[in-house]
Simulated assay, not measured.
Amino acid sequence: MTRLPALSVQTYTVRDDLGPRTGETLGRLRALGFANVEPFNIVSDPEGLARDLEAVGLRARTAHANIVMLDREEVVAAARRLGVETVIVPWAEPDRFRSQESIRQLAGEINDAARFAAHHGVSVGYHNHEFEFETHVRGTPAWEILVDELDDDVVIELDTYWASVGGADVFELIPRRSTRVRYLHVSDEPPEEDDPPTLGVPIAGRMPEVVAVAAPHVDLIVVEIVVDGDVFPRLERNARFFQGMLTS
């Protein structure tokens, strides 16, 4: 039987329902069938978050924490307390992708943080937005240059929406970069009127194809939905949608 990736959810999706309601909200995510979550804030109260996760039976295999900018010892300590396997750099300034030199410098900082984290049993990854693909240096997307400059141990979390907006063909990119892409951000939400134009191959309505291409290569499929208001109806539908693909 072919190995299938596990399903997770980025807690930024439920950012308005955290704080004093974190435990309750995590319980709602577990009730939707998620076994994993990807926290975006692990350093403010790792003990409290660990207790809340353990109470509802959720794992946090990945987390967004900018180990390049934050205190790396604090990030790694929080990750270890939470059982996080990979700390993912969620953002770098767009100006850092304007030249080969600045990309190489950023990669060096990430590599250095990754070597530190590896000594403590934690790996490091990088998560994209659109500008890494939209920006080209000597005709090459800056994202491609960054990946080539990163050490092999630094893994990639590919945000499929932002990659396609920035100009990528994720159907071509995922298998070509299969040795690096271990985590995938997805959403089966229809486009909204204020969404930016898509410069690459559109993926709206094509999530089954995206998952089919990625499933042999990635470890986690991470749902992220960024909307105002009550997100849980959309989360419930997305949970059913992706669980149906990942349990067949």
Rank of each mutant, 00 (worst) to 15 (best):
V84H: 01
Y161V: 11
F97M: 09
E134F: 12
A77F: 05
E144N: 14
R61G: 09
V155W: 07
V165T: 10
A142K: 02
E157T: 03
E172I: 09
A107N: 01
D71L: 10
H136I: 06
W91M: 12
I103D: 00
G83I: 11
D153G: 13
V75S: 02
T86E: 08
N111R: 03
S99T: 15
D112M: 05
H120D: 12
L32R: 04
R30G: 03
A31E: 15
A117D: 01
R115E: 04
S99Q: 12
V165I: 15
V43S: 05
V37Y: 04
L58C: 09
D45G: 08
G83F: 10
E132N: 10
E93W: 14
P141A: 09
F133M: 14
E85C: 07
A78Q: 05
F97G: 01
F97W: 03
S102E: 14
R81H: 10
H129S: 12
D112G: 07
E132D: 09
A92H: 11
L58P: 06
S164Q: 07
I88C: 02
V122M: 08
E93Y: 14
Q105N: 15
P39H: 04
A168Y: 06
F171Q: 05
Y126E: 00
D153M: 15
Y126R: 00
A107Q: 00
S99W: 09
F133C: 10
T62H: 04
E74W: 13
H127C: 04
D112A: 14
P46C: 03
N41M: 11
I88S: 02
F97P: 03
N41L: 10
S164N: 08
F133W: 15
D169V: 07
E109Q: 15
G139N: 13
P46R: 01
A77R: 10
I42T: 01
I156V: 15
A78S: 13
S44V: 14
G83H: 10
E130S: 15
V137P: 01
A142D: 02
A117K: 01
S99G: 08
P90V: 07
P90C: 09
A77Q: 12
D95P: 14
N36W: 11
G125Y: 01
L29I: 07
A114V: 03
V137E: 02
F34T: 05
T140G: 06
F131S: 11
S44Y: 12
N66A: 08
A31I: 09
V89A: 02
E157W: 03
N66Y: 07
V68H: 03
R138V: 12
A113S: 12
D112P: 06
L49Q: 03
G166H: 09
I67N: 01
D148P: 09
A77D: 12
T160L: 11
